[in-house]
Design a protein around this nucleic acid. Structure first.
Lengths: 233, 233
DNA sequence: TCCGAAGCGGAGGACATACCTCAACTTATG
DNA sequence: CATAAGTTGAGGTATGTCCTCCGCTTCGGA
């Protein structure tokens, strides 16, 4: 609801654009706000028509301001993506690797449950759109995950056969539950995340996990699993 | 590939139909075979056009033989559904409840990974189509799952806070992985199923699962998660 | 106050996908 | 070989998304 801090797009670009007319700037903010809501609810697959309708403007206006979906996403998600990265670093500060891991998983799952668009970006197709100042999110979060996993392995708290590549997959499974249970039992995903967390804990009797995923495997799965922002063409 | 045992639809119905012409019966078998393949690959969302094309017949022929999707599904999946139920009973025969549970989960996950249509039917919308002799699949498998869970709880091998309602959810998560990894790493889902299984095992340190799912919750999630066979109307 | 540039809206064209029908044609079989 | 049974696939209906374009409205500087 609070429409503060949306950031009128002054400077930050090649920038030879004159400032928008007052009414136009207002509409722009409305569009951004609407985009956040719509993408949060329906994921990146949401359409421009939905955003326009929610913002109470014509479709043409949305297109005029954001000629491509990427342009809109970049602005709408800038802040959320930063939060996501910040959260990961926070997790790293936990006293033990295990706590860091659990904290990260729970936070990420929570964020992805609340904002389906963020999930799509964080786990998926973000590769395809060059995000403004920051690189694509996976590049910023992945090294952190890697360090967390390493620490947990050193402690011996995390079962040895788990790798960083598993993390995105776990989050996809959980966010899938979150998404489909949202209307009925929005917290349902906690349950299955906890089950997975308990499965990750080192224990005397745990089964064989088989060959680990490679980064390419994960990439391919994400591409197939999550919506591809860009319309085919 | 073997096209044996498809069962020409003699008797078994109100039945006043005369036998099909030889060429028609052949086409019918082709269609059923094609339907099995297509539904296995693409799930219940597959279209009549796909089936027709795969069978090498015109769309009109498919419609003539199977006026509704349900009619086609009923025939195409009769055997697979029976297998599914048989498998569940087999699991029940395991020496311990825990082994029964693990066996059931692995078998079900495997079947759902191989046949996406079966998954859709087993976990989802089967409610909507009244399946020929057998009731909808969930009704036949659910009591078995329930007994397995009970036994495992009595033994104390399964953590106490897990319920039957969790089983379909676990299978959905896993089959989602199976589906999206199919082209790259078809066995990937084993890994995540194992993680879940290890999370299900009773252990000194396992986290709090929160409120269990109710049958209605599961119903609602399944409805939202899995394709609704029937076109809207 | 006024007017030109900036902005707006949303009908509608282009395209894709799915469902399902039907009239013209082909084929098995008594 | 006559005829009922069967086949075909183009095309009508419906739905949904993308995106453009042009007539109209509004802002804001002169």
């Amino acid at each position: 609801m609070s429409s503060t801090g949306i950031g009128s797009r002054t400077s930050t670009e090649g920038d030879d654009e004159r400032p928008l007319r007052r009414d136009a700037e207002l509409n722009r903010q409305r569009i951004i706000e609407a985009a956040r809501e719509v993408f949060a609810e329906r994921g990146l697959a949401a359409t421009f028509d939905e955003v326009a309708h929610r913002a109470g403007v014509g479709i043409g206006t949305v297109y005029r301001r954001f000629p491509t979906k990427e342009a809109l996403l970049a602005v709408a998600f800038e802040e959320r993506l930063r939060e996501h990265a910040r959260m990961a670093e926070e997790a790293l500060a936990a006293p033990t690797g295990w706590e860091a891991l659990v904290h990260f998983l729970r936070q990420a799952a929570g964020m992805h449950a609340e904002d389906r668009g963020l999930r799509d970006l964080a786990l998926g197709a973000s590769a395809e759109l060059g995000f403004s100042p920051h690189e694509r999110i996976r590049d910023s979060v992945e090294p952190i995950m890697r360090r967390i996993i390493e620490r947990a392995h050193e402690e011996g708290s995390l079962r040895a056969d788990v790798t960083v590549e598993d993390i995105p997959l776990l989050l996809m499974m959980v966010s899938e539950v979150a998404h489909h249970s949202h209307a009925v039992r929005p917290e349902a995903y906690h349950r299955y995340l906890q089950l997975l967390i308990d499965g990750l804990r080192r224990s005397s009797k745990s089964g064989n996990l088989g060959a680990p995923m490679t980064p390419d495997d994960v990439e391919a799965m994400a591409r197939q699993w999550l919506p591809t922002t860009l319309p085919r063409r």
